[in-house]
Design a protein around this nucleic acid. Structure first.
Lengths: 158, 158
DNA sequence: GAGGACTAATTCATCATTCAACTTTCACGG
DNA sequence: CCGTGAAAGTTGAATGATGAATTAGTCCTC
């Protein structure tokens, strides 16, 4: 960021695109949260479950899980503590590196995941995916991917 | 949400589009937050300032501001209290409806806005707008707009 | 094999968000 | 007018997020 006196203001087109993106992000998160509520899960809970479900042996190192879910170690630590109290995951110590810990999906966590996932997918479809044509969705993905890469490069602490 | 046993899983394409959208939302918010930090503002602060700046007389009813920024009345109330303590806005009572309050931009708030806005715009350009071709941006806006409308319809409490 | 630099993860203090309860005012039907 | 119900906003307690400081273990290099 330099002087910025040379930065052009947003055009109307750009404004509209930008604000629409903002609104969709926020409203969508809210809606998904609401749809998960009946199952006693938050959005964050669910994402942890997804990551662990997809992982080798249903376990991930805390750091990897933090990276995978794009959150700080501190936040993840609290999050896992809550989920541990809820019986969804447990911590296991790591043989090869005694500083490290694994977050491991419990039986109950896995069952919860299997039970909730279809509803969540339905929710994602209903409020997002199915509102695009396949072409529009692919075009969305294609133009958003470089943005994601750009941002991943310069994310510092999180 | 009915049985969901008939809801098709996400295809690879769909998964990628969905996760990319998620990642961009989160990373982008983080980046904008970081870019605002040097000016002592949060993203939320900034959005309030924008809304008030654009409003007639630099003032809005609490309810309208809450609706405009897509947040709950309670949250807004706390938010405005903080910003009031920071000297950026003040509350003024409403003549026509004595239950009502206006949030009004102070001189300092307006100055802050004018000072910070160029940097924020630069940030939005750098991390979002300028990473699309104009056509891609317009196509993004076009396909996201119905999603925003869909979600606005069914947002309950916030 | 001892020292210093680095990484994994947690803790503590502070701040933000949520949800429900509450106060005050308005609207309007009888 | 009177009362019932709804709306505008706030408050407070409980929960969640953030960031700096902390603990414990590893890695490297001499």
């Amino acid at each position: 960021m330099t002087t910025d006196s040379d930065t052009p203001w947003l055009t109307d087109q750009e404004q509209r695109a930008w604000r629409t993106h903002l609104d969709v992000s926020r409203l969508l998160m809210h809606q998904l949260e609401r749809d998960l509520q009946p199952f006693g899960l938050t959005n964050n809970d669910y994402e942890i479950l997804v990551n662990l479900s997809e992982a080798e042996d249903h376990r991930l190192r805390m750091s990897d899980l933090a990276a995978g879910t794009l959150q700080s170690k501190s936040r993840l630590s609290h999050q896992i503590t809550r989920m541990e109290n809820a019986g969804l995951v447990r911590r296991e110590s790591c043989e090869s590196d005694r500083r490290g810990l694994y977050a491991v999906l419990t039986e109950e966590g896995w069952d919860t995941m299997r039970r909730v996932a279809p509803h969540h997918v339905a929710s994602v479809r209903k409020h997002f995916i199915d509102l695009f044509t396949p072409e529009a969705l692919e075009s969305l993905r294609a133009s958003l991917t470089p943005v994601a890469e750009h941002l991943r490069e310069r994310r510092g602490g999180l």
